[in-house]
């Protein structure tokens, strides 16, 4: 059966544009509000990524850290994250949802238990930041058996030989990290160079959907629109932070930002 993630990419290709993938943190700033945000922005987002926060993240920049701490302070637990996913999926059964986080939470929850709850709540894909290839082989296989996409990451430091192995072991989608940075860093590589690397990966297997993330904002997104998909995270977290400060309706403000991002790549 073709996955919802693949369907989403196919649809975008037909419309001759990249898929827009949003990242927000579950429980930021409350459980209800993060669900409301998901529901609202899915109007324009093709795939939604939902972070499950960890208090010792080793690859997140300041914006996402702030969102994560806010969510944790409000007591978010994995079982709440699954509830949010479930409720979202009742309203938007066809919108692909990817959960993203750090491995220790999965490890404590129990891999099998975690995947069972992913399946029950309707999670379509998983990104585990600190479970690289080949350490992720057995877990990725478990995901495949449950028809959940395990999304492999490739970075500018990944050597060619390793890249081939990762692509061979990947599912429908691959995440290319645009530059050496934590999330939310300023784009320090030219879009031309990022696309060059992107094309090198694409050449290895044209069938795989490759998305680019890290450093993508409304200022940079248009320059990368040749990719299969583009991920925007830190800018959205920052928007939440600012709209909370100014006591604005976060879901509404965010929806506007996502709408504008989409407009730039359509």
């Amino acid at each position: 059966m073709i996955s919802k993630i693949s369907v989403a990419f196919k649809k975008c290709k037909e419309e001759k544009r990249p898929a827009l993938i949003t990242y927000t943190v579950a429980g930021d700033n409350t459980k209800n509000n993060s669900l409301k945000i998901l529901n609202t922005i899915s109007e324009h987002a093709d795939i939604v990524e939902l972070g499950f926060p960890h208090n010792t993240p080793i690859a997140d920049g300041g914006q996402i850290q702030e969102s994560s701490y806010r969510a944790l302070k409000n007591g978010i637990k994995l079982k709440n994250v699954f509830q949010i996913v479930k409720k979202f999926k009742i309203s938007f059964p066809d919108k692909p949802l990817i959960m993203m986080g750090y491995f220790n939470l999965v490890y404590q929850y129990g891999e099998n238990n975690f995947l069972k709850d992913c399946k029950v709540s309707g999670v379509d894909g998983l990104i585990l930041v600190d479970l690289p290839f080949p350490e992720n082989k057995s877990f990725a296989n478990k995901c495949k058996k449950k028809s959940i996409n395990f999304i492999q990451l490739i970075s500018p430091t990944t050597p060619n030989k390793r890249m081939r192995k990762i692509i061979k072991n990947s599912h429908d989608m691959i995440y290319y990290i645009s530059m050496l940075s934590t999330t939310g860093g300023k784009l320090k590589v030219s879009p031309k160079n990022i696309l060059k690397n992107y094309n090198n990966i694409k050449k290895i297997n044209r069938k795989k959907n490759i998305v680019i993330g890290f450093g993508i904002t409304n200022k940079t997104i248009a320059s990368l629109k040749k990719a299969d998909g583009l991920v925007v995270g830190s800018q959205l977290c920052k928007t939440i932070t600012n709209s909370l400060k100014n006591r604005l309706n976060t879901a509404k403000v965010l929806n506007n930002v996502v709408y504008n991002l989409k407009k730039k790549i359509t």
């Binding site: 600190d130 690289p132 990451l153 430091t157 990944t158 050496l180």
Partner: peptide, 21 residues
């Protein structure tokens, strides 16, 4: 081969970017 001691401790649970370095 996964850099684990006693099959349980250690290893390299790191972001992809750090694999090569």
């Amino acid at each position: 081969k996964n850099f684990m001691y006693g099959g349980k401790f250690g290893g390299n649970f790191i972001p992809e970017t750090l694999k090569k370095p």
